[in-house]
Computed example of a mutant assay.
Amino acid sequence: MASALTPARPRRYTGAMTDPVSAQPEDTGPAAVPAPPPVRATYVVLGLFVASLLFGLWGVWRTVAGPGGASGAELAAGQARIESLEQQVATLTRSDQISREANRDLQGTLAERDEEISALRADVAFYERFVGSTAQRRGLAVHELVLTPQAGQAWHYTVTLTQNLNRGAVSSGRLVLAVEGTRDGQLEQLDWAALRQQPDASGVEYSFKYFQQVEGEIMLPPGFQPLRISVRLVPASGAPVEQTLPWSEVAPRAAAG
């Protein structure tokens, strides 16, 4: 009988060694790593981000472009206003110019009318002096002589003859002129033929009841300085009438050539 104290024989383990971790019970269920989110959700999030970005850009564009558009409209309105004002200024300027020209023409016309009125008044006074009931009776006379320079050495003369002694009677005859002056330091007198440059020149005929203006041309020689001019009236009947006037009085606005 074997003793109960006999050591037991060690057991030999012939099985393969197993990793404690791998020794855990095998899990045949789903994988332990979590699956990624679905693709559709990703696109939704991305779309919302892009939409928000576009909306932000649109807001920025409205913020920037809005005032700019308003300024452009205001600029266009201001430019139109400026053009309108410029047109008004041009119109007013032209109107003022026309008014000035019309006023200048009117002033000129009024001045001419004043001269005509003065001349008519002088004529009326002249007529009254000779044909009025209180007019002083005078015979044939030279009332006025006016000389006007022409081209070269020529002069235009206007002689006003009057008479009211014989009312209704006709005075007729011839008029001749003579000029006294100096040339080359010597006194010289030019008769009617020399003044007309015609050896056989006859006097200018006149015929009137109360007054008449006789006009014509005379020519002075070069270098001649006139001093006096004489008017000689040779009536058809009666004694000749002669009157001498200083050259400076009958041609005050021109010097002799």
Rank of each mutant, 00 (worst) to 15 (best):
Y157T: 04
Q87I: 08
V89C: 02
P240V: 03
M219A: 13
I98K: 15
A8C: 06
S133H: 02
A23C: 11
E101T: 13
T158I: 12
G168N: 04
Q197M: 11
V64M: 10
H156A: 15
V231W: 02
R253D: 10
Y13W: 10
V146N: 05
R183H: 09
E215G: 08
A41R: 15
L227R: 07
P199Y: 08
F126E: 00
G68C: 08
Q87V: 09
R129C: 06
A201T: 02
E205H: 08
S84N: 05
W192S: 08
L177W: 02
P240K: 01
V21P: 01
V45G: 05
A102R: 15
G68D: 12
G68N: 07
T28E: 09
L75E: 04
P30Y: 13
A193T: 07
A169F: 13
L54Q: 05
G56F: 14
V170M: 11
G173P: 07
G216S: 01
S71M: 08
L220V: 02
Y127H: 06
Y206K: 01
A251M: 02
F130V: 11
F208D: 01
D27I: 13
R113T: 15
D114C: 09
V131G: 04
P25E: 13
Y43C: 02
E112G: 11
S237C: 01
P10Y: 13
Q189M: 10
T182Y: 09
D27T: 10
T182W: 10
D200H: 06
E205A: 14
A51C: 07
N164R: 14
D27Q: 09
E144R: 14
E217Y: 00
Y157C: 02
Y206M: 01
T6S: 14
F130S: 12
V179Y: 11
S22P: 00
A111K: 07
P235N: 02
P7L: 09
H143G: 04
E217M: 07
Q213F: 14
T6P: 10
R183Q: 15
T6W: 08
